[in-house]
């Protein structure tokens, strides 16, 4: 891996870290900023009102109507950032008033977590919530159900530095590509295979001429029914049937498994460009032996008779690991291989 690639990885990781590793998950948590009649960064349902607290100019939001709600979505945080939320809340909630903190982890309108908030007289309350083992975003909802006084001065959510000890929130209806432990966690018509929700769980669940193969779609790998022998050399695979070469080796469609599979006595090996250990490198014949003919797949110029290999690309999909006690976030690179062609 060249220095330039390392730098790109680092900068990308930093950017990702800044975007998703910031511990504050809620914007304008003290509802200090008001955009007209509603607090900035919050979507408002029902009627709310700006009120003073300990100081007439230290603001809070009063949930006036019986169905008043504050909603804010954070689409930059996912299961890789944190599995534990640290909440802090300062509110005035009268006895008998129903106010709920709700979390919607798919932002699809289905609330996976709902907790009625206790009576409060402006004291600071802190608590943790264990997030699902997989989520791609979170929508925070503060909702009043019925009459009564409910004023919110602060609702802060941060990525916790510590492990939550409570059981995780159950998240069902996960989309394709989401991590899963069982098909019941996946959305309708999806199955859990290989730890991800996908479109199939076996070749039998697909139509004739199709296999249940691992596909990398927009950076997310999951199983889905694909035409047999349609996965090109070098792409991720799960079975021999899905590869054009008919050979799926170590998760990548390969040209050969051993030297015997190669013609002209050439050897079968991984390309010299293999630098990252992720198991998705295909094996090719005559790697680096200047013997591959025009039109053949290649990874470097030394692979080709012509001495020219065009189109080879090793993209790095960076991602960062902010889970658990990872501080700061650890950058990773998920390589995406695109073989070249000998000219």
């Amino acid at each position: 891996m060249t220095l330039r690639m390392i730098s790109q990885v680092g900068l990308a990781a930093l950017a990702l870290c800044i975007a998703s590793c910031s511990s504050d998950l809620i914007r304008n948590p003290n509802v200090e900023r008001w955009c007209g009649p509603t607090p900035c960064d919050w979507k408002v349902e029902g009627e709310v009102e700006r009120v003073g607290t300990w100081h007439p100019n230290d603001y809070a939001v009063s949930l006036v109507s019986d169905d008043a709600a504050l909603i804010q979505e954070n689409a930059t945080v996912d299961y890789r950032d944190t599995d534990c939320f640290d909440f802090a809340m300062v509110a005035k909630i009268d006895r008998g008033v129903d106010v709920y903190l709700e979390l919607d982890f798919l932002a699809d309108g289905t609330v996976e977590f709902s907790q009625r908030l206790p009576v409060s007289d402006w004291e600071r309350r802190t608590f943790r919530v264990t997030a699902p083992d997989w989520y791609s975003k979170v929508r925070f909802i503060i909702r009043k159900d019925g009459p009564g006084l409910a004023i919110l001065a602060e609702i802060t959510a941060k990525m916790s530095r510590y492990q939550c000890s409570a059981p995780a929130i159950e998240l069902l209806g996960r989309p394709a590509g989401a991590l899963c432990n069982g098909t019941e966690q996946c959305a309708e018509a999806l199955s859990c295979k290989g730890g991800s929700c996908g479109g199939c769980d076996s070749d039998q669940s697909c139509e004739n001429g199709q296999v249940c193969g691992l596909q990398d779609i927009e950076g997310v790998s999951y199983y889905m029914c694909i035409d047999a022998a349609s996965t090109p050399l070098g792409a991720a695979c799960d079975s021999h049937q899905q590869c054009e070469t008919g050979l799926c080796l170590s998760g990548a469609c390969s040209e050969c498994a051993s030297d015997e599979d190669c013609e002209d006595g050439t050897s079968c090996s991984y390309p010299r460009a293999k630098a990252l250990d992720n198991g998705l490198w295909p094996k090719l014949c005559a790697v680096g032996q200047s013997s591959r003919q025009t039109g053949a797949a290649c990874t470097e110029n030394l692979d080709c008779q012509s001495g020219s290999c065009e189109g080879f690309e090793l993209r790095c999909e960076p991602y960062v690991d902010c889970t658990g006690s990872a501080t700061p976030c650890i950058p990773h690179c998920r390589p995406k291989l695109q073989l070249g062609t000998c000219r």
């Binding site: 900023r33 955009c35 960064d41 100081h55 230290d58």
Partner: peptide, 20 residues
């Protein structure tokens, strides 16, 4: 003396894509 956020200093009906 308290540093209060000035009233109405932000965008009304703020777009979700805008972050103050």
């Amino acid at each position: 003396t308290f540093d209060a956020v000035r009233r109405d200093s932000f965008f009304p009906d703020q777009s979700p894509a805008l972050e103050a």
